[in-house]
């Protein structure tokens, strides 16, 4: 299934009832060198828009929100040791966490790639 995007610069990729979440390539380039990532604990129940993770560059700290509701079933342990991964491969290896989707309908409210790109361009 195609990747969806939020206005808060998260991406979601859905496989069955599991959603993988990360921050967009645009977001990582705006942040600059990422130096620290904190991912949520497995088992945590997240509601859509809950603060789920933290990503820090030297001079900025940002919350990463849950794009949709669900239970955290996996978190990317590599990010703690290698935060630079976020700069290298934001929309691939540097996924933040996986959710067991609670409500698939919430996906419909998110943007597709073209809409997100237009959104980024517009807000620049």
């Amino acid at each position: 299934m195609a990747i969806k995007f939020t206005r808060d610069h998260e991406w979601v990729s859905v496989d069955g009832d599991i959603a993988t979440v990360g921050i967009t390539s645009h977001a990582q380039s705006a942040l600059g060198d990422v130096v620290f990532v904190e991912v949520p604990e497995i088992g945590r129940m997240l509601k859509q828009k809950d603060a789920a993770a933290v990503v820090e560059s030297v001079k900025a700290a940002s919350e990463v929100y849950a794009p949709i509701s669900g239970e955290v079933v996996a978190a990317n342990a590599d990010l703690a040791g290698t935060p630079a991964l976020v700069n290298e491969d934001a929309e691939g290896k540097a996924w933040f966490f996986k959710l067991k989707i609670a409500n698939k309908a919430q996906l419909d409210g998110l943007m597709d790639k073209a809409a997100y790109d237009a959104f980024v361009k517009e807000s620049a």
């Binding site: 610069h9 705006a30 990503v55 030297v58 001079k59 900025a60 700290a61 919350e63 929100y65």
Partner: peptide
């Protein structure tokens, strides 16, 4: 995510 501060270059 919410970017609450503008980044500046931090590598030399």
């Amino acid at each position: 995510m919410a970017m609450n501060s503008s980044g500046r270059p931090t590598t030399p």
